[in-house]
Simulated scan of single mutants.
Amino acid sequence: MPHDRGSRIRCWGNARRRDARVRNLGRLAGGAAPYFYIGLRGSHRSRPGLPGGLPGFPARVRSGRGTRARARAGQPESYSENDLYPDVRSALSKLRAMGVWVGVVGNQTVRSGQILRSLDLPTDFIATSDDWGVEKPSPAFFSKVVEVAPCSAAEIVYVGDRIDNDVAPAKAAGMRTAYIQRGPWGWILRDMPEVAELSDWRIRDLSELPGIVATENEC
């Protein structure tokens, strides 16, 4: 569905209307956010059919009962700087240099959020579903995204790799959406008609985002 022109991008997250300027980016990586998607590479590449929690995250940090069960067994999720896709820091840094508010959110554990914060990523906000007590695709999760962002829903671009968990609910919440074709779900769902119907943009990596913001905010 083509998006209307006129709104500026202030946050990275999600936005549907285009009657305000965009100043924020959102949705964390590997499920994104203005929440921004932060890409993590890793074991999902050898397990392409594995469902995901955050776009691009390695399988070992996926959310859900399996992750919590492993944590109780003394094997909590773990990842580091080496698990980030190479475009993460440069893309987020460019967005912040443009005055874009960058947030990272997704269906993850409290521990996962702590790890992300410890990486000192160029973001303004990081939160997980366990932090908030509500998970995607609940409308309450996306209401939280709008609540914490310093802009309206129409000024948020939400980046995600799933239709059901990311793009559709973000669009319903009034955000603009960018579908990222990366990670297992990004490839599994890439040919679904909903990708074209519900996404304002379709990207393959984070390096495309600064250009999108520059173009939109010039209009």
Rank of each mutant, 00 (worst) to 15 (best):
Q181W: 00
R202F: 07
D19F: 11
A15S: 07
I212A: 10
S63D: 15
E194P: 12
A173G: 01
L116I: 13
R21T: 04
R89Q: 02
E197P: 01
A29C: 01
W132T: 02
T123S: 01
A168S: 05
R5E: 11
N82P: 00
A140Y: 03
A59Q: 08
S80R: 10
L119F: 03
A196F: 00
E155Q: 15
R111E: 13
L28R: 00
I203W: 06
R21L: 10
P58V: 09
G56C: 07
D120Q: 08
P86H: 12
L116Y: 08
A154E: 15
R96Q: 15
I115L: 09
I212R: 14
C219W: 14
V102S: 02
I188N: 03
G211L: 07
P169T: 08
L198C: 01
Y35E: 13
M1C: 07
G74N: 10
A149T: 15
D161Q: 04
R27A: 03
N24S: 09
R16Y: 09
L54C: 15
G53V: 02
D131S: 06
D200T: 12
E197C: 02
Y37I: 07
M192P: 00
S118G: 14
D131G: 01
F125L: 10
S7L: 13
G183N: 03
V159D: 01
V213S: 07
R21W: 05
R117C: 08
P137M: 01
N14F: 14
G30N: 10
R202W: 05
R17E: 06
